[in-house]
């Protein structure tokens, strides 16, 4: 007989309620954000009878605020909300595009940014490389207070992280850079990507790249920065052809993931094409206007 005071789905009214429930129930509970991953547990043959701590009533987690200094995105903001709210900001375009093209329209309407980055088993998340490329920090709250962390540090510890604290906000510094996101799906759309790429660059004198942050997802089990490529493109004009050529020399940083949708070699092989796509998008849209 079930003696827990919590129903199998607990609608937390505020963050404290949620955190208390997570601590009390420990391993027998899991936070529920957009539900698109958790509700598919039966398909993954996961049979654990876990209590869902539903965060959707916590209004504070849904807000998106953008000012001159930073963009602050609540962890419960959906892909659709993010794509709409960030539309038109050149520096944040990578995240807007990643959120606006992931999966399919219905999933974008439900899936949240918090869920996207917290799901350790999901290698093909679109928002993770975008947040890496935009140098986002996470705000994490527990019963003992809040802290912030870089995306890289968060990802490093993600697989073993306990769910007793919660990612509450993503904080993205505003910059003069331009950014974009490119993804390759096996069909035209509607798939998770076999490889994705987010690029954020600043242009210096003569239109040459003066700073760059590039992150790659889906190629390996966890998205990561492409540091060799970031360094190699400094000082070059951002032409798609040139960028693709440089990318070809920087692939040894990756160990392509063999999975059902594509072999590892394929993910690496298409990555340079994604680089060309990303830089031609930059050229056509934001850079074109800026230059």
């Amino acid at each position: 007989m079930d003696i827990t005071p919590y129903p199998k789905l607990f609608l937390a009214n505020d963050l404290n309620e949620a955190l208390r429930a997570l601590r009390e129930l420990a391993d027998s509970a899991i936070p529920l954000a957009g539900a698109t991953w958790v509700m598919r547990a039966p398909l993954r043959c996961e049979t654990a009878d876990r209590t869902l701590i539903d965060l959707s009533r916590i209004e504070a987690l849904r807000t998106i605020n953008i000012d001159q200094q930073e963009a602050v995105i609540g962890a419960l903001a959906t892909h659709e909300q993010i794509a709409n709210a960030l539309n038109g900001y050149n520096d944040l375009a990578a995240l807007a595009q990643a959120a606006g093209h992931s999966a399919n329209p219905a999933i974008r309407r439900m899936a949240t940014i918090g869920g996207n980055i917290c799901t350790a088993e999901f290698a093909a998340a679109d928002l993770v490389p975008a947040l890496l490329a935009l140098d986002a920090r996470l705000e994490i709250e527990g019963l003992d207070g809040s802290r912030t962390q870089t995306m890289a540090a968060f990802l490093e510890a993600r697989a073993t992280r306990a769910h007793t604290d919660l990612v509450t906000r993503l904080i993205i510094p505003r910059t003069q850079r331009t950014s974009t996101h490119a993804r390759l799906t096996l069909r035209k759309a509607g798939d998770y990507p076999v490889a994705n790429l987010s690029v954020s660059i600043a242009l210096g004198a003569g239109g040459k790249i003066s700073a760059a942050t590039v992150a790659v997802g889906a190629v390996e089990a966890v998205a990561k920065r492409w540091t060799g490529f970031e360094e190699a493109i400094i000082g070059h004009a951002p032409s798609p052809e040139k960028m693709q050529m440089i990318a070809k020399t920087c692939l040894e940083e990756f160990d392509g993931r063999d999975a059902m949708d594509a072999p590892g070699w394929y993910r690496l092989r298409v990555l340079t094409g994604l680089v060309a796509n990303a830089f031609s998008t930059l050229q056509e849209t934001t850079l074109g206007r800026a230059m």
Binding site: L43, L186, R187, K188, A189, G190, D191, Y192, M260, D261
Partner: peptide, 14 residues
């Protein structure tokens, strides 16, 4: 391929 994510049916855009 145990479901629709892995078994890719043509979609409208294809």
């Amino acid at each position: 391929q145990t479901g629709f994510e892995a078994y890719r049916l043509p979609l409208a855009q294809d």
